[in-house]
């Protein structure tokens, strides 16, 4: 789970870079070029399946392990645990479930339209992701929901990166502090970076 989690975290950076192209005031030229490259390049198309596999395995293993963990304590405590632990680590399954809901919503708005599972919104073309994005982000309610989901993704990533390193045994007293800092910075970068796009469309577009 840790290995696939770290892989998915790396993918987010690629996705964020393309999303930030929406902020270029060029009528979507760069964004359209990047998204059509992602949609047509054969290597990227193959990688798309690897990515789906990554999501699938990460989610399935996460659910199986969580169910096994719950079964390891059939009788619970009367007083909930008060041990000093990192806050976000206790809610990884729940933040993960929230992100999963967003993922379905996100697929319905973009990927399922592309592969023809969901009807193209009226007045838009199948591959015109720029106009689809604008139609969504100019809707203030959608933008706020989008930002809320990315705040939860930030919570998830904050623990996930360092947790992935620990699970893989990539632990060293020289680098442990750096890994924790990178975890924090990366979660802020992803949550903040993705949220910049709806904020831009809500207030400056």
């Amino acid at each position: 789970m840790g290995l696939f989690g770290l892989f998915l975290a790396m993918f987010l950076l690629v996705h964020l870079t393309i999303n930030l192209l929406l902020l270029c005031n060029d009528g979507g030229e760069l964004f359209t070029a990047a998204s059509s490259f992602m949609g047509t390049n054969i290597a990227i198309k193959i990688f798309e399946y690897v990515l789906f596999g990554g999501f699938f395995i990460h989610i399935i293993i996460g659910v199986i392990i969580t169910l096994k963990n719950w079964a390891s304590r059939p009788v619970g405590y009367l007083v909930a645990n008060k041990s000093h632990t990192s806050f976000f680590s206790k809610y990884m399954f729940y933040t993960g479930a929230i992100i999963f809901i967003f993922l379905i919503l996100h697929f319905m708005h973009f990927f399922f339209i592309k592969i023809g599972w969901v009807q193209v919104p009226a007045g838009l073309e199948k591959h015109d992701f720029y106009k689809m994005a604008i139609a969504l982000f100019t809707n203030k309610l959608y933008s706020l929901v989008y930002i809320a989901f990315f705040i939860f993704l930030g919570f998830h990533l904050n623990h996930a990166i360092q947790s992935g390193f620990q699970t893989l045994g990539l632990n060293h007293n020289k680098y442990n502090c750096t890994i924790k800092r990178v975890s924090l910075i990366y979660s802020l970068l992803v949550a903040g970076g993705f949220s910049l796009v709806p904020i831009y469309f809500m207030f400056f577009f």
Partner: peptide
């Protein structure tokens, strides 16, 4: 026994 989810309790 359960699996470690790195809460460090």
């Amino acid at each position: 026994f359960g699996n470690c989810s790195n809460t460090y309790a």
